[in-house]
Design a protein around this nucleic acid. Sequence first.
DNA 1: CGGAAGATCCACT
DNA 2: GTGGATCTTCCGA
Length: 205
Amino acid sequence: MSRFRPLSNAFYVRPADIVAPELLGRYLVRELDGERTVARLVEVEAYLGADDPASHAFRGRTARNAAMFLAGGHAYVYFVYGMHFCLNVVTGESGVAHAVLLRAAEVVEGVETAAQRRGVSADAAPRLLAGGPARLCEALGVDRAFDGASLRRGELTLREGEPVTPPAIARGRRVGVAYAGRAAAWPLRFAVRASPALSRPLAAR
DNA sequence: CGGAAGATCCACT
DNA sequence: GTGGATCTTCCGA
């Protein structure tokens, strides 16, 4: 999988709703203690910074969301519900605070390691491995230590992989943002239709 | 300084 | 389908 190169700086420096669908099919590579775990992204959501009531950056910069204001290509990791981590890819120019939440992935290498971190058996359903933002983080051993880290080098990298084209992509409203009023209905969730690892079913058409 | 709510997950009915 | 776990963050008083 290291035959794939890290995504370029130019890739990230665009609005989150443009970058999000292009992240599907890409590989998130985690190196830890000599073990490599690789996950193919199958579900993401775009958050549009100051223009988006659902975004953590809607009300400006705080200690928690500082990483969102870095230049595109960095990670924004936050802690929720007192027990879970969620990983975002920051996009756009520095100061814009756009981000893409990584909601689900298919583990394509290092299944044993991922399953162990998740506390499930290696033959568990894909959804139980990394189908969900917090499950994805646990499967890859991602925590607060990566908040603000670059995704172009280091122990957690996002690589070119095999992009998915529009016919295979479903689009719908974001999950868990009912508090955001009208923005809750914005179609900023993108998912690979055929994936068995989605965090939850796609809305009926 | 207190309290409410949270970009979730799991066990159980 | 429902409720509980668990604790950080942020806003209002």
